[in-house]
Design a protein around this nucleic acid. Structure first.
Lengths: 145, 145
DNA sequence: CTTAGTGCAAAACCTTTGCAACTCT
DNA sequence: AGAGTTGCAAAGGTTTTGCACTAAG
């Protein structure tokens, strides 16, 4: 949190109240994957009404600064979550094709795979995203009806 | 190709010239990941100008019929390729963050991972999508300048 | 004070939809 | 003939942008 201030200062970005409020929204909703609209709704009422355009610009900025990670669940809008890619074991998503619920799971094996692929393809890999699509437990039950 | 005709006949879909032309576009461009706009461009001129809306509707239909696989490289548009998920080892993508080039790689290890995760999460997994982001060989060289 | 950031409204994009005309089967 | 299909234009939804105003450093 202190090094966030530092990060901003270094690049001459300003730590406005809007940016703080938006960051707070993510801190308060670590279990969710927020879209711009979601953030706008959460933030509405707090402080002096943040414009939607500002939300978009902030999400963009935070992604560049690696504060947020951009996600895509194929529902037609970008979603974001606090970035944990720095931690050695970051997580991925299980997306239910019926109810749209998103569960998370950690990876481990994937690191091995990444190394192998990097070597073979001569790519320098800086990030990965893995998504599994299927049916969650509840929806499997409903399906049997 | 014969069972395509069958598939259409069974569900009372019609095998129109537009649909054939669009399928041909994918057959002619197996190395690319085509967006609706791409298809529209490729197809323009052939036959009697296919409407963009028709392209969208056809891509949608083909995806439902598992003829095409929908992809998402985070560039703000849906892309498609001929579906090979039936084959036991389908492939995934390496996306260059600098030039946007997309390379493919097969998976193998991923099958193991999928099984493990299905068991642990009680999800019935029907598909997966793995993307690695990084810098391709050429861009690494350019970067060093 | 200076420069970056904000809000608003308009614009830009990609995608979907309503509807009359059309064409496979 | 009759069902599904097409094209066009209009509408929808998300994201971006121009610009005058505001606020952080």
């Amino acid at each position: 949190m202190a090094d966030l201030r530092q990060k901003f200062h270094d690049r001459q970005y300003k730590l406005t109240s809007q940016r703080q409020t938006i960051l707070q929204a993510f801190l308060d909703n670590q279990d969710r994957h927020l879209s711009a609209e979601d953030v706008h709704t959460i933030v509405r009422g707090r402080a002096s009404e943040i414009g939607l355009a500002t939300v978009y610009r902030t999400l963009e900025l935070f992604s560049e600064l690696d504060i947020l990670q951009r996600l895509d669940f194929g529902d037609g809008r970008q979603r974001y979550e606090l970035n944990e890619t720095n931690t050695p074991h970051h997580h991925h998503h299980l997306i239910c094709l019926r109810c749209g619920r998103v569960r998370e799971f950690g990876d481990d094996l994937l690191e091995t795979l990444e190394t192998a692929i990097a070597k073979r393809s001569k790519f320098t890999i800086v990030d990965h995203q893995l998504k599994f699509y299927g049916y969650c437990e509840e929806c499997q039950k409903k399906r049997e009806n």
